[in-house]
Amino acid sequence: MNITAKKESFGARLLKNMRKNWILYLMITPVLLYYIIFSYVPMYGVLLAFKDYKIKLGILGSPWVGFDHFQRFFSAYNFKRLLMNTVGLSVYGMIAGFPIPIIFALMLNYLRHRKLKKAVQMVSYAPYFISTVVICGMISIFMSQDSGIFNVIRGFFGMEPVDFLAKPEWFKHIYVWSGIWQGMGWSSIIYISALAGVDYEMHEAAIVDGATKIQRMIHIDLPSIKPTILMLFILQMGGLLGVGFEKVYLLQNSLNRSAASVISTYVYEVGLVNSDYGYSTAVGLFNSVISLVLVVTANQLSKKFAGESLF
């Protein structure tokens, strides 16, 4: 009896809280407004994917077309190519790019020269802060047919020079390996800090038992940083279809286009260049739904088999 009498309604408690902490509510207002306007209104705008958008009629007034845009995309002549390029670039990028920072961190962890360790760490982070535009500029310099370093090396071995950026078959290698060059140092930070937290007593015990460094890596370090590895793996799964727009867009030219067009560049082309709003939104929606499914699946799998999850 007494307890129920003391309990106020939710509304009353909220009102009381608002009165007491009005400053906090005032502060959060612009943040909420920002996300409503720039995230939730566009989410509502996703309706465009099912409409034949007419500027005069607005989103609500435009006629429904159901799944027409999606059907058009699935039967487009370049659908298969776009999907294959997108998935190909990210799967290749993940297979090559995911383990490298882990191996790099493990090896760096056993490097005994302190100064060299510091130096390697410092220079390996630097490329991360260089803009995509400059990275692509550097790629075009180093890949150039007449004076680029790769062709100089090829010439040294008596091979013919290749115009790498004009060859579709080279595109994925250029894209993935330049990405690894730029990102491996930065991605390794999180593993390096996880490795620093590994209990040294385990290593001492292993040393006494005569374990080699490679054995210690495999049996002590790797299991210790497993949660970190899984967490990053889930996050990367979500990005599987989210191949960065900027780099592909900047590196594509009329000659390598068959390999250098992905879903995100297509969304830009049909949307902003051709102003085909409904269709572009549908393609974008297809992309984000698959990404969402992938991240949730990876999360559930990891939860089930490894007991680690992001949400």
Partner: peptide, 30 residues
């Protein structure tokens, strides 16, 4: 702040935007 009542709801609202967005064109239109 623990005494900010709607903090869980607001957190969830904000975190959803990390995983899902309207995409290029709807954002452009806004």
């Amino acid at each position: 702040r623990k005494d900010f009542m709607p903090r869980h709801v607001v957190m969830i609202l904000l975190m959803i935007t990390m995983y899902f967005s309207g995409g290029l064109i709807p954002t452009y239109l806004v």
